[in-house]
């Protein structure tokens, strides 16, 4: 099985971090993977995206042009990538920030008010992890049991509070 995942949003929303978390989880599962960030000026404040491929086969091109899973954290990203998703694919939308509905009818859409939830629950700034929780719940990208170990890889031991924060945000996303 191969999952082509595209995560897109503004710089600073944790787009690359979300991808990195998925990549480490896949590594722990001893699967094939690639992680490719956009590295242009956009990563310093504009739109930003990240291709992650998780597969049981060697990964060919690391560039996700036709995502199975699209995670969008702003309106420009939905406008740009909605049409690229494969028929039958999944789109996860931060509905607090994206002010329109997905027009495609041949994909599964999950609207997660991630930014509103993160503010409400005191998890400011980790809407990305709430969205990711929803992705993990609905799409068989990675196994839930690998979440703690993968988080330990991306959050340094010095920031135990952030580790807990992120885990709880993901768990909150399970029910979204």
């Amino acid at each position: 099985m191969t999952k082509n995942i595209l995560i897109a949003g503004f710089g600073g929303q944790g787009v690359l971090f979300t991808g990195k978390f998925l990549a480490y989880a896949a590594l722990l599962e001893d699967r094939q993977l690639s992680w490719l960030p956009s590295y242009g000026p956009e990563m310093r404040g504009g739109t930003c995206n990240c291709s992650v491929i998780v597969s049981d086969e060697p990964v060919g091109s690391p560039i996700v042009t036709e995502p199975d899973v699209l995670i969008v954290m702003n309106r420009p990203s939905l406008d740009r990538f909605e049409s690229a998703v494969v028929p039958g694919g999944e789109i996860y939308v931060d509905s607090s920030l994206v002010d329109r509905k997905v027009e495609r009818t041949d994909v599964t859409v999950h609207y997660v008010p991630a930014t509103a939830l993160s503010t409400e629950r005191g998890f400011d700034g980790i809407a990305n992890m709430i969205l990711l929780g929803s992705v993990i719940e609905h799409s068989a990208v990675i196994d839930k049991k690998d979440i703690p170990a993968a988080m330990a890889k991306v959050v340094s031991a010095k920031h135990k509070d952030l580790y807990e924060f992120n885990i709880r945000a993901i768990e909150l996303g399970f029910s979204c």
Partner: peptide, 10 residues
């Protein structure tokens, strides 16, 4: 090239 430099793989 830029992709090879920027991408992460195991």
């Amino acid at each position: 090239d830029g992709t090879m430099g920027q991408m992460m793989e195991p």
